[in-house]
Computed example of a mutant assay.
Amino acid sequence: MKTRTRILSALAALLLPVAGHACETITFEGRGYAVCEARTGEDLRIFQTAPDGRPFGSFTRVNNALRGEGKRLAFAMNAGMYHPDRSPVGLLIEDGVQRKDLVVGPSDGNFGLEPNGVFCIGDRFRVIETRAYAADPPACRFATQSGPMLVIGGALHPRFLVDSDSRHIRNGVGVRADGQTALFVISEEEVTFHEFARLFRDVLKTPDALFFDGSISRLHAPELGRDDIGFPLGPIVGLVVDR
Protein backbone atom coordinates (compact mmCIF):
# COMPACT_ATOMS: atom_id res chain seq x y z
CA MET A 1 0.00 0.00 0.00
CA LYS A 2 2.84 2.39 0.86
CA THR A 3 4.54 1.62 -2.47
CA ARG A 4 1.30 2.33 -4.35
CA THR A 5 0.94 5.66 -2.54
CA ARG A 6 4.50 6.65 -3.44
CA ILE A 7 3.91 5.79 -7.10
CA LEU A 8 0.70 7.80 -7.25
CA SER A 9 2.39 10.76 -5.57
CA ALA A 10 5.25 10.64 -8.06
CA LEU A 11 2.83 10.49 -10.99
CA ALA A 12 0.83 13.42 -9.66
CA ALA A 13 3.95 15.53 -9.32
CA LEU A 14 5.04 14.76 -12.88
CA LEU A 15 1.63 15.65 -14.33
CA LEU A 16 1.57 19.10 -12.75
CA PRO A 17 2.42 22.06 -15.01
CA VAL A 18 6.17 22.60 -14.99
CA ALA A 19 7.46 26.11 -14.44
CA GLY A 20 10.77 26.80 -16.16
CA HIS A 21 13.08 23.84 -16.55
CA ALA A 22 12.19 21.80 -13.52
CA CYS A 23 14.25 19.17 -11.86
CA GLU A 24 12.63 17.48 -8.91
CA THR A 25 13.16 14.56 -6.58
CA ILE A 26 10.73 11.66 -6.35
CA THR A 27 10.57 8.41 -4.40
CA PHE A 28 9.85 5.01 -5.90
CA GLU A 29 9.81 1.86 -3.80
CA GLY A 30 11.56 3.65 -0.97
CA ARG A 31 14.47 4.96 -3.08
CA GLY A 32 15.09 8.53 -4.17
CA TYR A 33 15.63 9.80 -7.70
CA ALA A 34 16.29 13.19 -9.28
CA VAL A 35 14.28 13.76 -12.47
CA CYS A 36 14.90 16.58 -14.97
CA GLU A 37 12.72 17.35 -17.96
CA ALA A 38 13.40 18.76 -21.43
CA ARG A 39 10.85 19.47 -24.14
CA THR A 40 11.14 19.80 -27.90
CA GLY A 41 11.84 23.37 -28.93
CA GLU A 42 14.19 23.86 -25.99
CA ASP A 43 17.94 24.05 -26.43
CA LEU A 44 19.04 20.57 -25.42
CA ARG A 45 22.58 19.70 -26.52
CA ILE A 46 25.24 17.02 -26.17
CA PHE A 47 28.66 18.37 -25.26
CA GLN A 48 31.85 16.49 -26.01
CA THR A 49 34.35 18.66 -27.90
CA ALA A 50 35.42 21.91 -26.21
CA PRO A 51 36.67 24.93 -28.22
CA ASP A 52 40.26 23.75 -27.64
CA GLY A 53 39.47 20.43 -29.32
CA ARG A 54 39.66 18.42 -26.09
CA PRO A 55 36.70 16.81 -24.30
CA PHE A 56 34.80 19.20 -22.04
CA GLY A 57 35.02 16.70 -19.19
CA SER A 58 33.07 18.73 -16.63
CA PHE A 59 29.94 20.79 -16.13
CA THR A 60 32.11 23.76 -15.18
CA ARG A 61 33.92 23.78 -18.52
CA VAL A 62 30.61 23.58 -20.38
CA ASN A 63 29.23 26.51 -18.40
CA ASN A 64 32.42 28.50 -19.01
CA ALA A 65 32.04 27.96 -22.77
CA LEU A 66 28.36 28.91 -22.68
CA ARG A 67 29.11 32.15 -20.88
CA GLY A 68 30.31 33.64 -24.16
CA GLU A 69 26.84 33.03 -25.62
CA GLY A 70 25.16 34.60 -22.60
CA LYS A 71 23.89 31.12 -21.72
CA ARG A 72 24.19 28.58 -18.92
CA LEU A 73 23.17 25.03 -18.09
CA ALA A 74 19.74 24.63 -16.52
CA PHE A 75 20.74 21.02 -15.82
CA ALA A 76 23.19 18.47 -17.19
CA MET A 77 24.38 14.90 -16.66
CA ASN A 78 26.86 12.45 -18.13
CA ALA A 79 25.43 10.94 -21.32
CA GLY A 80 27.04 7.68 -22.31
CA MET A 81 30.06 5.49 -21.77
CA TYR A 82 33.56 6.53 -22.73
CA HIS A 83 37.14 5.29 -22.97
CA PRO A 84 39.96 6.34 -20.60
CA ASP A 85 40.80 9.23 -22.95
CA ARG A 86 37.13 10.32 -22.56
CA SER A 87 36.28 9.58 -26.18
CA PRO A 88 32.81 8.02 -26.59
CA VAL A 89 32.47 4.25 -26.84
CA GLY A 90 29.66 4.48 -29.40
CA LEU A 91 27.95 6.87 -31.79
CA LEU A 92 28.30 10.55 -31.05
CA ILE A 93 26.77 13.36 -33.09
CA GLU A 94 27.55 16.87 -31.91
CA ASP A 95 25.73 19.80 -33.55
CA GLY A 96 25.27 17.82 -36.77
CA VAL A 97 28.86 16.51 -36.88
CA GLN A 98 29.32 12.76 -36.41
CA ARG A 99 32.32 12.41 -34.11
CA LYS A 100 32.13 8.63 -33.66
CA ASP A 101 30.51 5.85 -35.69
CA LEU A 102 27.68 3.65 -34.48
CA VAL A 103 28.84 0.41 -32.83
CA VAL A 104 26.73 -2.58 -33.87
CA GLY A 105 27.25 -6.05 -32.43
CA PRO A 106 28.94 -7.49 -29.35
CA SER A 107 31.14 -5.28 -27.17
CA ASP A 108 32.31 -5.11 -23.57
CA GLY A 109 30.60 -4.25 -20.29
CA ASN A 110 27.14 -2.79 -19.85
CA PHE A 111 27.40 -1.13 -23.25
CA GLY A 112 27.54 -4.60 -24.78
CA LEU A 113 24.49 -5.89 -22.90
CA GLU A 114 22.39 -5.99 -26.05
CA PRO A 115 20.09 -4.52 -27.02
CA ASN A 116 21.75 -1.17 -26.51
CA GLY A 117 20.57 2.05 -28.10
CA VAL A 118 20.83 5.67 -29.17
CA PHE A 119 19.38 8.85 -27.71
CA CYS A 120 18.64 11.25 -30.59
CA ILE A 121 17.82 14.96 -30.44
CA GLY A 122 16.19 16.12 -33.66
CA ASP A 123 12.75 17.43 -34.56
CA ARG A 124 11.64 15.23 -31.68
CA PHE A 125 13.35 13.13 -29.03
CA ARG A 126 13.97 9.44 -29.68
CA VAL A 127 15.45 6.48 -27.84
CA ILE A 128 16.12 3.87 -30.52
CA GLU A 129 17.52 0.34 -30.31
CA THR A 130 20.91 0.28 -32.07
CA ARG A 131 20.03 -2.13 -34.89
CA ALA A 132 16.83 -0.21 -35.64
CA TYR A 133 18.88 2.97 -35.78
CA ALA A 134 21.37 1.34 -38.18
CA ALA A 135 18.55 0.16 -40.45
CA ASP A 136 16.91 3.59 -40.71
CA PRO A 137 18.91 6.42 -39.11
CA PRO A 138 16.78 9.45 -38.22
CA ALA A 139 18.01 13.00 -38.62
CA CYS A 140 19.74 13.80 -35.33
CA ARG A 141 21.34 17.13 -34.56
CA PHE A 142 22.81 15.52 -31.44
CA ALA A 143 23.02 11.83 -30.56
CA THR A 144 24.77 9.52 -28.12
CA GLN A 145 24.92 5.74 -28.04
CA SER A 146 24.95 3.82 -24.77
CA GLY A 147 23.64 0.66 -23.25
CA PRO A 148 21.86 -1.31 -22.27
CA MET A 149 18.38 -0.23 -23.25
CA LEU A 150 16.27 -0.03 -20.10
CA VAL A 151 12.82 -0.13 -21.68
CA ILE A 152 12.12 -1.24 -25.26
CA GLY A 153 8.63 -0.66 -26.65
CA GLY A 154 7.17 -0.77 -23.14
CA ALA A 155 9.03 -3.95 -22.10
CA LEU A 156 11.98 -4.19 -19.73
CA HIS A 157 15.32 -5.37 -21.09
CA PRO A 158 14.99 -9.18 -21.15
CA ARG A 159 18.21 -9.80 -19.20
CA PHE A 160 17.33 -7.72 -16.12
CA LEU A 161 16.81 -9.82 -12.99
CA VAL A 162 14.29 -9.00 -10.28
CA ASP A 163 16.57 -10.46 -7.60
CA SER A 164 19.87 -9.04 -8.91
CA ASP A 165 22.41 -8.05 -6.24
CA SER A 166 24.23 -5.64 -8.61
CA ARG A 167 23.47 -2.20 -7.22
CA HIS A 168 24.95 1.13 -8.33
CA ILE A 169 24.10 4.78 -8.64
CA ARG A 170 22.64 4.84 -12.16
CA ASN A 171 21.49 7.45 -14.65
CA GLY A 172 19.63 7.39 -17.96
CA VAL A 173 17.02 8.95 -20.22
CA GLY A 174 13.49 8.05 -21.22
CA VAL A 175 11.30 9.55 -23.94
CA ARG A 176 7.52 9.81 -23.80
CA ALA A 177 5.51 8.23 -26.62
CA ASP A 178 4.87 11.50 -28.46
CA GLY A 179 8.59 12.30 -28.60
CA GLN A 180 8.00 15.74 -27.13
CA THR A 181 9.42 15.14 -23.66
CA ALA A 182 12.70 13.60 -22.50
CA LEU A 183 13.18 12.71 -18.85
CA PHE A 184 16.68 12.48 -17.40
CA VAL A 185 17.02 10.50 -14.18
CA ILE A 186 19.76 9.75 -11.68
CA SER A 187 19.26 7.56 -8.63
CA GLU A 188 20.16 8.99 -5.25
CA GLU A 189 20.92 5.52 -3.92
CA GLU A 190 22.29 2.32 -5.39
CA VAL A 191 19.64 0.50 -7.44
CA THR A 192 19.44 -2.54 -9.71
CA PHE A 193 18.82 -2.35 -13.43
CA HIS A 194 15.38 -3.88 -12.88
CA GLU A 195 14.39 -1.23 -10.32
CA PHE A 196 15.73 1.59 -12.46
CA ALA A 197 13.99 0.37 -15.62
CA ARG A 198 10.66 -0.07 -13.83
CA LEU A 199 10.80 3.57 -12.72
CA PHE A 200 10.91 4.63 -16.38
CA ARG A 201 8.21 2.20 -17.47
CA ASP A 202 5.77 2.33 -14.59
CA VAL A 203 6.14 5.82 -13.11
CA LEU A 204 7.56 8.08 -15.80
CA LYS A 205 5.58 6.28 -18.53
CA THR A 206 8.38 6.26 -21.09
CA PRO A 207 7.99 3.33 -23.51
CA ASP A 208 11.66 3.58 -24.46
CA ALA A 209 14.53 4.38 -22.10
CA LEU A 210 18.32 4.12 -22.25
CA PHE A 211 20.97 3.60 -19.57
CA PHE A 212 23.77 6.16 -19.59
CA ASP A 213 26.12 4.87 -16.89
CA GLY A 214 26.56 3.75 -13.30
CA SER A 215 28.90 4.53 -10.41
CA ILE A 216 30.43 7.62 -12.09
CA SER A 217 26.96 9.10 -12.77
CA ARG A 218 26.70 12.80 -11.95
CA LEU A 219 24.14 15.60 -12.12
CA HIS A 220 24.33 19.38 -12.39
CA ALA A 221 20.99 20.80 -11.23
CA PRO A 222 21.24 24.21 -9.51
CA GLU A 223 17.59 24.21 -8.47
CA LEU A 224 18.24 21.01 -6.53
CA GLY A 225 21.47 22.40 -5.10
CA ARG A 226 23.53 19.82 -6.99
CA ASP A 227 26.76 20.25 -8.90
CA ASP A 228 28.30 16.79 -8.56
CA ILE A 229 32.06 16.56 -8.97
CA GLY A 230 34.41 13.69 -9.69
CA PHE A 231 36.66 12.26 -12.37
CA PRO A 232 36.48 13.89 -15.84
CA LEU A 233 33.49 12.84 -17.95
CA GLY A 234 32.96 11.90 -21.58
CA PRO A 235 29.74 13.01 -23.34
CA ILE A 236 27.50 15.38 -21.38
CA VAL A 237 23.86 16.20 -22.13
CA GLY A 238 22.54 19.54 -20.94
CA LEU A 239 19.63 21.93 -21.28
CA VAL A 240 20.86 25.41 -22.23
CA VAL A 241 19.04 28.57 -21.12
CA ASP A 242 19.76 32.30 -20.97
CA ARG A 243 21.84 33.46 -18.04
Rank of each mutant, 00 (worst) to 15 (best):
L73S: 01
L73I: 01
F75I: 01
F75M: 03
A76L: 08
A76Q: 07
M77K: 03
N78V: 09
N78K: 11
A79K: 00
A79C: 04
G80A: 06
M81L: 08
M81N: 03
M81E: 03
M81W: 02
Y82V: 00
Y82E: 00
H83C: 09
H83D: 11
P84D: 10
P84W: 06
D85Q: 08
R86N: 08
S87W: 05
P88N: 00
L91T: 02
E94W: 10
E94M: 12
D95K: 15
G96E: 14
V97T: 14
V97Y: 14
Q98Y: 09
R99H: 11
K100V: 08
K100H: 14
K100S: 13
K100L: 08
K100I: 08
K100Y: 11
D101Y: 09
L102V: 14
L102G: 08
V103C: 06
V103G: 06
V103Y: 07
V104D: 01
V104F: 01
G105E: 01
G105M: 02
P106S: 15
P106M: 13
P106L: 13
P106I: 13
S107F: 04
S107Q: 03
G109S: 12
G109R: 10
G109D: 09
N110L: 13
F111K: 00
L113E: 12
L113I: 13
L113Y: 10
L113K: 14
E114C: 11
E114R: 15
P115S: 08
P115T: 05
G117F: 06
G117C: 07
V118P: 09
V118F: 06
V118W: 05
F119V: 07
C120S: 06
C120P: 07
I121E: 04
I121G: 05
I121S: 07
D123N: 15
D123V: 15
D123R: 14
R124I: 12
F125A: 11
F125N: 10
F125I: 13
R126P: 11
R126F: 13
V127E: 06
I128S: 08
I128P: 08
E129F: 04
E129N: 04
E129R: 12
T130Y: 09
T130E: 12
R131C: 04
R131A: 09
A132K: 13
A132W: 05
Y133G: 03
Y133P: 03
A134I: 04
A134V: 07
A134S: 11
A134L: 08
A135Q: 13
A135L: 09
A135N: 11
A135Y: 05
P138T: 02
P138E: 03
A139H: 13
C140G: 04
C140H: 02
R141V: 10
A143F: 01
A143N: 01
A143Y: 00
A143P: 02
T144K: 04
Q145Y: 00
Q145K: 02
S146D: 07
S146G: 11
S146A: 14
G147L: 11
P148S: 03
P148C: 03
P148Y: 03
P148H: 02
M149N: 01
M149T: 01
M149F: 01
L150D: 03
L150Y: 04
V151I: 09
V151D: 04
I152R: 11
G154L: 06
G154Q: 09
A155L: 15
L156T: 10
L156F: 12
P158D: 10
P158E: 12
R159K: 15
R159E: 15
R159I: 14
R159V: 14
